[in-house]
Structure formats: structure tokens, C-alpha cells
Design a binder for these strands. Structure first.
Lengths: 117, 117
DNA sequence: GCATGAAATAACCAATTGGTTATTAAACGA
DNA sequence: TCGTTTAATAACCAATTGGTTATTTCATGC
């Protein structure tokens, strides 16, 4: 999968409150589908669909234990998303750095004009 | 808008490479729709739709200047998204903290056993 | 007033999403 | 073997998404 596709899948997975809640629950440790579904007013298949979205994004792994299929959290893709946001902030802040430079120059010019009076 | 809805809209807006590229372009400064559309093999209305998604998420503001409708970047929602990810990482790391504690206890117990020999 | 340029809007389309109910499959326990 | 539990899968549906082309709106300059 391309980096861009990975980010697409991760951000899309995060764009739903049910899925963010599932991730939050999993941060406390592995859980079965039934346990994950319990807090929601939603059918079991609906939760399984959300889990499939999270799995396709690589955020959740499925294991097996008797009839249960416990899910565990996988944080690497979240780290990649956080890194994109951090890189973006750097970019954005560079811009302000540039703006500051412009302001500094304007102020220096104003100073110069004052001296010229 | 609820905080949750704001996050939904922000993550959804970020889940598309065209929109992320638009944001990256806007980090360098305001740009018209035509300027934003230029790099993409895509019609102008398609880009306008992407811009509408970004605007609904509060990531982009529209101003007016003659016939142009320059867009500018708005970073607050990105900050909120980054904060969610950071909070989530804290949560996740607490879990490891707990695991470390368990490991510490196991090692202390092992030490004890060795002393008992 | 009119042609031009920039962007929005409308109407359409196929694919995807997020939910449902019903059914099936897999593993266990008695 | 048979019932129970757990979860997946199938089939369906309405709404949304991401694109298209055609048209309209708005501001400008002559």
C-alpha cells in the first residue's frame, strides 16, 4: 500500500465516533466483538463492519481464542497520521516565520524612514 | 457543532490525497480556485467540491477579491485533530506503563525467589 | 451594454458507507 | 451428536461521495 493510501485509510477510519470509541476501548486492552459492541445501540454486524474498516486501515488485529475473535490495537498507522499532522504544522509555521521576516523588514524600513526625517 | 462532529469532519476531510495536497498548497499562502485546481487532472467543479468539504470542516476560509474567491488556511481544526491523536497516545502509553508495572512486579518477584534460594 | 473570466450550481452517475435483518459457520460443552 | 455462543457473511436499503458536463452567476473592463 502506498503511503498516501495508508493515510487515506487511517484518516477515514478515524472519521467516525463509533470507530474512535472502539479504538479508545482497545487502548485498555484486547476485547471481543461482543465486548466492543456492548456500549453501542447498534447491531453486531454493524460493529463488525466498523471493525473491518479499522482492520483494513491496519489499526486493529484479529486473533482467535475459542469462539472469540479478540481484537488488539495496532498504533503504527496512528503514529503515521500524527506525523503527517506534525509535518504539516512545521510547514505552516515556516509560513509564519516568513511572515515574521516580512514584518521585521517593514519595521526596519519604518525605522529607517523615521531616521530620515 | 459538537466536538465529535468537528473531529469527524476534520478526519474525513484529511482522508483524501487531493484535499491534503490542497491544504499543503494553502500552507504556502492564499490561492484562487484556478490555482488550486491547476496541479490536478480534474475538472474545476470537482475541485470546488473538495473545497466545500474543507470549508465545512472549517479548514479553509473563502474571501473575495474581484472575481476571484481566494481560499486561506484555517489551522484550528487540525490542531484539534492532532490533540486527539496526542491524547490517544497518552492513553495507549498508560497501558504500557501498566504493563511495565506488571513486568517490574514479576522481576521483583523473581528477585525475591532468587533470594529465597 | 456586452464580452470575458472566475467560480458556483445543477443534474446526473457509479461506487462506497453505514445501517438493517436473516442466515451461516466455527468452536465449545454436555 | 446436538444445542449454545460468538462472530462472519449475505442481501438489502438509503444516504453520501467523488467524479462528470452543462449552465448560471458575478464582477470586471471596454
Amino acid at each position: 500500500m502506498r503511503v498516501s493510501d495508508q493515510l487515506d485509510a487511517t484518516f477515514a477510519a478515524l472519521a467516525d465516533p463509533t470507530r474512535r470509541a472502539i479504538l479508545t476501548r482497545l487502548a485498555a486492552g484486547e476485547a471481543s466483538v461482543a465486548q466492543l459492541a456492548a456500549p453501542f445501540d447498534m447491531s453486531q454486524p454493524a460493529v463488525s463492519k466498523h471493525l473491518k474498516v479499522l482492520e483494513r486501515a491496519g489499526l486493529v488485529l484479529r486473533s482467535r481464542e475459542a469462539q472469540r475473535r479478540p481484537r488488539t490495537l495496532q498504533t503504527e498507522p496512528l503514529q503515521a497520521a500524527a506525523t503527517w499532522l506534525e509535518d504539516f504544522r512545521s510547514l505552516w509555521e515556516e509560513r509564519f516565520q516568513g511572515l515574521d521576516t516580512v514584518l521585521d523588514e517593514l519595521m526596519a524600513a519604518a525605522e529607517q524612514e523615521r531616521d530620515d526625517e
